[in-house]
Design a protein around this nucleic acid. Sequence first.
DNA 1: TACAGATATTTCAAACTCAAAATATTTATG
DNA 2: CATAAATATTTTGAGTTTGAAATATCTGTA
Lengths: 165, 165
Amino acid sequence: MNMTNPEDLRNDADNETSDLSKARLRAWLQVLKVSRKIEGELREKMRLEFGSTLPRFDVMAALYRSRDGMRMSELSSALMVSNGNVTGIVDRLVADGMIVRVPVENDRRASIVRLTPDGEKDFAERALVHEGWVSELFSDLSANDADALIRILRTISHHNEAPHD
Amino acid sequence: MNMTNPEDLRNDADNETSDLSKARLRAWLQVLKVSRKIEGELREKMRLEFGSTLPRFDVMAALYRSRDGMRMSELSSALMVSNGNVTGIVDRLVADGMIVRVPVENDRRASIVRLTPDGEKDFAERALVHEGWVSELFSDLSANDADALIRILRTISHHNEAPHD
DNA sequence: TACAGATATTTCAAACTCAAAATATTTATG
DNA sequence: CATAAATATTTTGAGTTTGAAATATCTGTA
């Protein structure tokens, strides 16, 4: 545990917790609240406007950024979900013709997943609409606050960092 | 859509999106990333240390704050999840002896859910440990940044506000 | 080459989640 | 009072999610 803050250094053999600890807990609960609220709004819009879901969109977004495709394990670590989870979502996207599985040369355990032309076209359109939704949901967020928010959240996500950001 | 920011007022008959819009999208993706990461960490700790889950903890936390109990509909709106979802979690917590359903006087449609003495005891212990986990995961977050984070996130969650915060 | 361990993915069971439909009950209106 | 509308909750079906086990394949070492 990082003990750089004076609040954390006092004697606490009892169960009392510090003000700082409580402030951090409040901050986490607020992150959770915003995250759930925005996710809920986006999920509903995806369903009504696109007849699709958030997990499908997330997978396609990752593949759109990596035009050469990604392995299943790359996908699951990029999205921070389990391997088994990605399998199911990919299965359904393949059935929908949005993506394809391509065997990997020299490694028959792995396969690479990539967008089909249809998938690319669909995603490109939807990504613009999606960005508009987010911008509207965040319309009270100024450029300065957006930067501050990103900076603060990065300090958190860099703590106990997995390989890279 | 809130059109108070100059960036949003320019002509954009084409699909180009503003820098501010992109900054907000980045901010949202960072919120999502931190939220997933912290949730994953907490879920694992809950499982290993408590043999329990995050949704169960959330329900018990809500009930701990409302000692007189809550209706199912109050629970689902407090946790921002669907009614049907709460039913399943409550069923399992009842089976575990952590909570009970109490009929509501004069309204046989509704029932009130409240912690049992065992549930209260269990939650009280776990809440302290949980706060410690969060504080450690957020240990790079200063008091100032915690306050800034809460303030910024509140401006977002107040946008298109449901009844209260 | 044989084979132990590592790696990539899928399968599996249980839990979570949603939205819509179904059920039960209460309230309001004629 | 009758009953339509509203409310509270559960049920249902599909999809998502996890963690563990199973499967298939690859790699390094003897």
